[in-house]
């Protein structure tokens, strides 16, 4: 049944349906409702919720729970994610699966609590120390916050790696209908987990490899799984892109604005289309190249100073001119603003 749900609440609903039974976190606007719903709902389904003393502690509690083999998560916003980066690096190094939600707010520093997409580099490119990747999904609706949280759990377990649900304050705070059905959560066997049992007594969870060759081997094995993910996991959505001369590229809340801008443009006879990455790592670069095949221009719109822009440029590799439109500080461009931006250029070019 379709029910109204706040984005942040949908995260926990999706997580519970995915079999997550442990949440460790610390409150922060605009992500607090994630912790609040976890506190309310998880204990009712036999799960654990704990408000940690800091995000540093929270992510290490996640590390402990994940080492024991349970599906576990945390959620926060930029400043909290900065504090978690150490733990995320350890999780990746120890090959522990978990899900972390970042409801992005304005930065750097304390910034503000309004929506921004300035954490792209920190979450998609790394942020913590060492050679590792996060799997990153980018929901654009409340329904997707639930669904992509579920997907994040699956991918985290499949690749034994942290998976990040990256959204912005608007997606976390908005209310939309969600349609969720109970389903059997399929949690894979985790023979590596340390459960304090005879069967798991010989198991060791660690990220330390003192010998250079050993650590290199460990990293090569991680690279191999990242290569597999890069082949198998990119996801994207197209809207009116088939014959688009101007291809708009944006994720999360921006993609919603761009969708409206495409509609407006089409009404005026402008051939605009939308490419929306659903996974940010792995970035759907090949699909983007295909979608931009007929485009004369690509316009990237972000609530950042041009972070995903770099991945778009890398993927397109000079095939199509790439332009960039940015709003930051908590400003979200309106449909008209985006429309004006590219429509005037189209007319000027014509």
């Amino acid at each position: 049944m379709r029910q109204l749900c706040k984005g942040n609440v949908a995260v926990i609903k999706g997580a519970i349906l995915a079999g997550c039974r442990a949440y460790y976190g610390y409150p922060i606007t605009p992500a607090s409702e994630i912790a609040e719903s976890a506190a309310l709902l998880l204990p009712q389904v036999g799960g654990t919720f704990l408000q940690a003393e800091s995000e540093v502690a929270a992510i290490n509690m996640v590390y402990g729970a994940s080492a024991a083999g349970v599906r576990v998560m945390s959620g926060s916003s930029g400043p909290g994610l900065s504090l978690m980066q150490e733990g995320i690096s350890y999780l990746a190094g120890a090959e522990l699966p978990c899900v972390i939600v970042d409801v992005m707010r304005g930065g750097p520093g304390l910034g503000n609590i309004a929506p921004e997409q300035g954490d792209y580099f920190a979450m998609v490119k790394g942020g913590g120390h060492g050679n590792y990747r996060n799997i990153v999904v980018a929901p654009a609706s409340v329904q997707e916050l639930a669904e992509l949280t579920m997907l994040a759990f699956e991918l985290a377990d499949k690749y034994r790696n942290p998976a990040v649900v990256l959204c912005d304050g608007f997606v976390g705070q908005m209310v939309e209908p969600v349609d969720l059905e109970e389903r059997e959560a399929v949690v894979p066997e985790k023979p590596w987990a340390v459960e304090g049992t005879a069967a798991t007594r010989k198991n060791l969870v660690t990220s330390i490899y003192l010998e250079s060759d050993e650590l290199e081997g460990h990293q090569r094995q991680m690279e191999a799984k990242y290569a597999l993910a890069a082949r198998e996991e990119p996801r994207h959505e197209l809207y009116q892109a088939e014959d688009a001369e101007v291809l708009l590229v944006g994720y999360g809340i921006v993609s919603r604005v761009l969708r409206s801008a495409v509609e407006k443009a089409r009404q005026e006879g402008l051939r605009a289309g939308l490419f929306r990455p659903i996974t940010l790592w792995p970035f759907p670069g090949r699909a983007l190249v295909a979608a931009a095949a007929r485009a004369k221009r690509v316009l990237v719109v972000e609530l950042s100073n041009g972070q995903m822009l770099e991945d778009v440029r890398l993927a397109l590799d000079g095939r199509v001119p790439v332009e960039f439109y940015s709003r930051v500080g908590g400003n979200v461009p309106t449909t008209e603003e985006v429309h004006t931006r590219f429509a005037s250029r189209v007319q000027a070019a014509a």
Partner: peptide, 12 residues
């Protein structure tokens, strides 16, 4: 971070 990780382990 051992007490935090131990918390996650003990509760799991």
């Amino acid at each position: 971070r051992a007490p935090a990780a131990a918390t996650g382990l003990a509760r799991a």
